[in-house]
């Protein structure tokens, strides 16, 4: 019961952080709110038994994402223009989409239900056979690197493509014209 209570409180804090990020117009503050949001998400992952995901989120989501955003704000300026149009249409779209999604959850298996279909298919096989087939006690590692190794290879292809894209957009151009340090307004 303690875990459920902590879970409920943390998710409430996540909601407050997200709403604060919407209302702020200083991009530096929005980025810091996003960092807090990611850190709270990492704590939620610890509570929900996903320790590997938690430290990846804490390192990559909180660390690298926030640094990338801060670096971008340093280049493009930190103040957002106040919106000129009224937010009625976006609010309507968001409300309708949210209502449709809430309707969709009514058929979902309840939280932490051991009989949910997601726990029935291949997972008992992985949990039972992993020690003898791979010799690794951490089942997340054995699925990531062994049973679903090709998925991880695909992930590497995506990261490589993104890295090439970033270099093509920023890195190579800058080197040709080293005199242009700052972006022209």
């Amino acid at each position: 019961m303690l875990i459920e209570t902590i879970n409920i409180v943390l998710l409430g804090m996540l909601a407050l952080t997200a709403l604060a990020a919407v209302r702020l117009h200083d991009l530096f503050a929005v980025t810091i709110m996003f960092g807090i949001y990611s850190l709270l998400a990492a704590v939620v992952f610890v509570v929900l038994d996903a320790v590997d995901v938690a430290f990846t989120e804490a390192a990559v989501g909180v660390g690298i994402s926030t640094v990338l955003m801060l670096a971008t704000i340093g280049l493009v300026g930190r103040h957002e223009q106040r919106p000129v149009h009224r937010p009625l249409l976006p609010l309507l779209v968001v409300a309708v989409t949210g209502a449709a999604l809430v309707y969709g959850t009514l058929d979902m298996p309840f939280f932490a239900d051991p009989a949910a279909p997601v726990h029935q298919h291949v997972v008992p096989y992985y949990l039972g056979k992993s020690p003898e087939q791979t010799g690794i006690p951490n089942v997340v590692t054995s699925i990531l690197a062994s049973y679903r190794g090709y998925d991880t290879l695909g992930e590497l292809a995506v990261i490589f493509t993104a890295g090439v894209g970033v270099l093509a957009l920023l890195g190579l151009r800058r080197r040709k014209r080293p005199s242009k340090e700052h972006p022209t307004p």
Binding site: A50, V118, H119, V140, I143
Partner: peptide, 8 residues
Amino acid sequence: YSNPLPHV
């Protein structure tokens, strides 16, 4: 154990 597949 909790389900490791979503974690991966």
